[in-house]
Write a protein that binds this DNA or RNA. Structure first.
Lengths: 144, 144
DNA sequence: TATTAAATGTGGACTATGTCAACTAAAGGA
DNA sequence: TCCTTTAGTTGACATAGTCCACATTTAATA
């Protein structure tokens, strides 16, 4: 692969690290971290979500996940229900409070996106969006 | 801004968080973290680089930066030279060992990129590259 | 079926990473 | 001169993440 292309890609990676960094350090208008927010999000998106799904999807150590989930349960954001078929597994659900929090986080995230794109024209925004979809689609099919 | 567009952007952000996460947890074929690697990189790219530049560019706390730099100096990867004009400032330089390490990290990073894009056609790779440049250019001019 | 292997989750002990506030020292104004 | 800003350091602390050993349960297979 061409040096110049690799250079551009690494430059993009550095750049987008910064973008995501800014985002992620702002979730904390609530008392929760990005990781916790993503866990709530994944639980809400999945049916029959178990801890191990999250471990794989978010690349987090099992023991660490166990502790995070315990914390979220203590704070009444999620609840666990042991599977009747396989008693090793605990299905995870959001509580009402958890859903409310996720809703709040979603609103904030939308707001962040709006700020980031503020000032760009509709056609520019759409160019960016298309670009994102191209990247995701091509890399996704390839590796993830 | 349209709900659907925001949805796509957030999806991309989650996706790219994962991509960068994989990358960043592999730097550790050396004994150094991504942050340390980025610091070496920035020092090598800049002339008259001082700690405060890194603090701003990488969004890292001053005190934390101070400690990281001390560690890198102890390990003989960088050295500091006090400015003669403004004695508050320490200009940062890579040592020979630091340059060698950065070189090694660069080779590994190139390799990672190659792996990520492995299997894609030249035209697909170029599409991704163009997409990245569009995103960077538009957001960069806007915010960063 | 008996045995072994793999999956799921937990707990203890630890290291790494990051944050906050207080401080020194020098430089740049007004 | 006095006040403010900039650059960097230190101590104390908090949060995040890792490693290893372990218990249970299920799956695989000889």
């Amino acid at each position: 692969m061409d040096k110049e292309i690799i250079y551009d890609i690494r430059q993009f990676n550095r750049f987008y690290t910064k973008v995501l960094g800014l985002f992620n350090n702002q979730i904390l208008d609530t008392d929760y971290s990005l990781t916790e927010a993503r866990i709530l999000f994944e639980i809400s998106e999945r049916t029959e979500c178990i801890a191990n799904n999250l471990v794989q999807e978010l690349n987090i150590d099992r023991s660490y996940m166990s502790r995070i989930l315990r914390k979220l349960e203590r704070e009444d954001l999620i609840k666990k229900k042991s599977s009747t078929i396989d008693s090793r597994k605990n299905f995870l659900f959001l509580t009402k409070k958890g859903e409310e929090l996720l809703g709040k986080i979603n609103i904030q995230s939308d707001e962040q996106i709006n700020q980031l794109f503020n000032g760009l024209s509709d056609s520019e925004i759409n160019e960016i969006r298309i670009s994102m979809m191209i990247i995701k689609e091509k890399l996704d099919k390839n590796k993830f």
